[in-house]
Amino acid sequence: MTALRLALRADDRPILIAGASIVLILLAGTAYTMATQGTATLLSPNYLLQQLQVGAFLGIVSAGMMVVILLGHIDLSVSWTLTAAAMMATAVGGPWAIPVGVGVGLAAGLANGLGVGYLRVPSMIFTLGMDAVLRGLMVAHTGGFAPQTAATDLMRALGAERTAGVPNALFVWAAVSVLIVLVLKRTVLGRAIYAIGNREQAAYLSGMPTRRVILAAFMISGACAGLAGVLLAGYSTKAYQGMGVPYVLPAIAAVVIGGANILGGSGRYAGTVVGVVLIVLLNSVLSIMQMPEAGRQIIYGAVIIAMLLAYRGGKLAHT
């Protein structure tokens, strides 16, 4: 019966495979620590919560990235959107720090959405240009050094502190997740995002305001990157140059490992969450094993290809 269900729900297959891989990674890591240190560090709740806290930043970026990928577009500007939001938030400080950070993200998303939705520039190249412009603005603003301004207390509380043993960043991630799921499942906007990802002409002919939907999706992505920047600045107590750069490709990888089609139109949010957890745990287990950077990169690439091949295994040949 399980096989039948798997065949029926194509969307679930990647999530199940990725979930199984997470268990496998945890078991392999635990076997390693048991052999070398005689402890099962990886399975302690404290360790797992710590990893999830680190994962929350990637998770929030991936949530926004997923919305754009569902459209069939991509947002390569998240790296410097995140950095710019963090720098602006710490520069402004006070009660307005967080709204300013998210606002920077919204503004970057607005520019991206206008370029992609209204000017019809391919998103790959327009968001790349936005990334370069934001980087240029930040270099001009900071002089190329790490800014001296520090994160506000509220940012630190959200990014680094814990409530009842659970990191606050996790609550933020959960809140963002609930919002994204509601938008995707329960609103016209969400339906339109999937529709445009499947076939833009059809969506347009059905009377959907495709331009505004694209604009909205990029603004969601920008806002998520901005929020992640605010939290990350809180976590590391300040903003620094290029802090968002290590988040772009893992965010895309997380969405794709979660089973979303990189060409748009299909994918479930739960998959993205599983993808984020998988990437974060893989990184952490590899660093526990003291794997050199070279090996890490190779494993990272091999895992992405292997996962995608595994997902394909269940589908009939098409295209």
């Binding site: 070279a294 190779i298 394909r312």
Partner: peptide, 26 residues
């Protein structure tokens, strides 16, 4: 043969190529 879209396939192979490069020149 893997029927993976080029953008994501090459994202993965890029990581592998960088890994090989780091292996040769740490």
């Amino acid at each position: 043969y893997g029927r993976i879209p080029p953008i994501i396939a090459t994202l993965a192979t890029a990581a592998i190529a960088i890994g090989v490069a780091l292996l040769l020149r740490p």
